[in-house]
Amino acid sequence: MSDYNFAYLDEQTKRMIRRAILKGIAIPGYQVPFASREMPMPYGWGTGGVQVTAACLTPEDTLKVIDQGADDTTNAVSIRKFFEKTAEIAVTEKTGDATVIQTRHRIPEEPLGEGQILVYQVPIPEPLRFLEPRETETRKMHALEEYGLMHVKLYEDIARHGHIATSYAYPVKVEGRYVMDPSPIPKFDNPKMDMAAIQLFGAGREQRIYAVPPYTKVVSLDFEDHPFDPSKADHPCDLCGAEHTYLDEVIIDDDGGRMFVCSDTDYCAGRQAKGHRGRLSPTEEAAQ
């Protein structure tokens, strides 16, 4: 027995969060207000995602936590340990084995299936916030489906840079109604949001929960003459050779040398285990 209530939160709080999640599922892309609790970690470390995960976990679940695609960064490790201690659930780094995946700023490369839940950590849930700081006004804009301002912003990008310069937290329209912030995932991940798994978004500091049910239309905003482009670095992964994954650029010496590696560590390791090799992979002899 753990000294904590199952999954840390008290039952009354979980009921309140669960009701918000269900209304979020019923109104895809709409931000449901909820009474976010203080968590034993600072805002910005995924307090919203942790509360959503805590409300969803059952004792039979297997949890995976990633931060920018990696399972072994501080944020991911501490959240995983938090739930190992407070919910005594199984954890994994393998995307396919997980039933609940909490993520900060990435969608795993391996397609998610039915029976999986993807929980996003969200810093600023309101896509219109940087265009209109007043909550009363943005709420009215969502109510009236008044999203002209967002298109003006994207147009100004084109006028200034020749293309839409927004490369992460790229706004999407969900099921033809609500414009939604997909959290700061790279726009490379946007097309994956049309998926078979349930997607839940938690913003702890801003006290909002929203959701995208499976098989829901998620369209990245664009213009006919400037269609959405999910761009990525023009390189293969230097460790596994993948040409279809989102890459991190890593500086490797003082002379400007650099390498590109998959941001999804589990996917990259899986490919290497299957024998895929990249430009900087250790040779077979060196590995032995």
């Binding site: 039952e11 009921r15 669960r18 269900l22 019923a26 049910p213 499976p214």
Partner: peptide, 19 residues
Amino acid sequence: NPPQDSSRAFRAALETLAR
């Protein structure tokens, strides 16, 4: 066992409403 039982019940409620 309220925490465990309600967590399983909620997942059924979530799955049925989401699908």
